[in-house]
Design a protein around this nucleic acid. Structure first.
Lengths: 222, 222
DNA sequence: ACCTGAACACCGTTCAAGT
DNA sequence: ACCTGAACACCGTTCAAGT
């Protein structure tokens, strides 16, 4: 990370914009209008510069999005008091990550990779690992357990926000509705049985229930 | 769904291309060069037509991708013999869906919504629901259980394929590597302990272990 | 060292017209 | 009914030049 406020020996033209300003402006656009509207050109005009000037402060758009996510995590994830009991600490840490991500729908499209967790998020990862190890798992199995929780958490966010976006986009009957309308109750009886309740049932927020089930399963026999 | 092979009364110009041809050509492009290279213009030239002709057969690019996924599911998901024992049937059905999706990395970017499961995939959903109900869950809880499994499965695919793509893209040190390089062992001891093994550990395919833990948790006390 | 202008090589989609 | 040409309103990124 560069030191933007460090005294410069000015061996060249003084900078007009900073990496911080680029990120802050990008955040404003994303918060106000969504991640789709964040383009390098738009960002440049917003900042009162040209698209090319941006490339002097971030490598490309991908890096900009990573920096943006980091910036978001740093301000959204404040460290709460976590329960002392390991299982409950895991639940609370995972739920905190989930809550922060869920409050920020654009994040789902950006960050599904495993190597973009910001430094501020790592403290939560640490708590989860610690809870798993304290519950009797080896460090290796604890990493696998954490990953399982992360897959579940990321999947929940991505699936739910994509579904919500799609619902908002077209107001006609969804693809699912058309498929569910002509289900054969003989061939798929269980689905037919719940077909008309599918939308409300799947819209329910059952993240915590699923998380507890998952953690119960991970800790079973330990 | 239209009947493309039905006899026509030809009250107009005869079609030169069909929806099936559009989808088949799109599939060829995606299989050969990845989903990023599938553009309406590219597809039009490949098919020997113009971009606008495509819009007569699919509503827009989004619908094309949905149709493409459906087409893929229809040919990738053949129904295997599933175990009679409910828990093992759930595992096998979820694993079959996971295997089909994992073999098709482009799918992750396209299909993370909940209402795009094709008709052919529904049979697997049915098996999971049935296994959960047979294990003692109410139909409502079975739907929630299925969703939890789907979140986990979709998350695993999305996270792993995005990570793989990112690894392939830039050959420099990843963001995670830079962050992990200067972890404070006093503040984040568990992470520091596994920091150098993180990459291989998280690269391991532990989908089935996680799935079994999740299902154990869902079925606990039933 | 930092910024600019102009260009490259594209996108998805709409509109009005043709056959 | 189906297809075409031309256009609209954009993209991310590179290159060579300016200060």
């Amino acid at each position: 990370m560069p030191q933007p406020s460090a005294p410069r020996k000015t061996p060249g033209r003084p900078p007009r914009i900073s990496r911080e300003e680029v990120i802050a402006t990008a955040r404003r656009i994303v918060d106000a209008e969504g991640v789709d509207r964040l383009t390098m050109r738009r960002l440049a005009t917003e900042i009162g510069s040209t698209p090319m000037a941006l490339y002097h402060h971030v490598r490309n758009k991908e890096e900009l999005l990573v920096l943006l996510l980091d910036d978001y995590a740093a301000r959204a994830l404040h460290r709460p008091e976590l329960p002392a009991q390991p299982r409950e600490r895991i639940v609370a840490a995972a739920a905190a990550i989930h809550e922060a991500l869920a409050a920020c729908p654009w994040i789902a499209e950006v960050l599904t990779a495993d190597d973009l967790m910001s430094t501020s998020a790592l403290w939560f990862v640490e708590q989860i690992l610690d809870g798993l190890v304290e519950s009797g798992l080896t460090p290796e199995r604890a990493v696998h357990g954490y990953r399982t929780i992360w897959y579940y958490t990321a999947g929940e966010i991505v699936v739910r926000t994509t579904a919500a976006r799609r619902r908002a986009d077209d107001d006609g009957p969804t693809y699912r509705e058309r498929v569910f309308a002509d289900l054969d109750p003989n061939e798929l009886p269980r689905l037919a049985q719940v077909a008309d309740r599918w939308a409300p049932l799947t819209a329910e927020n059952t993240y915590l229930d699923g998380l507890r089930a998952l953690i119960d399963g991970l800790l079973a026999a330990h």
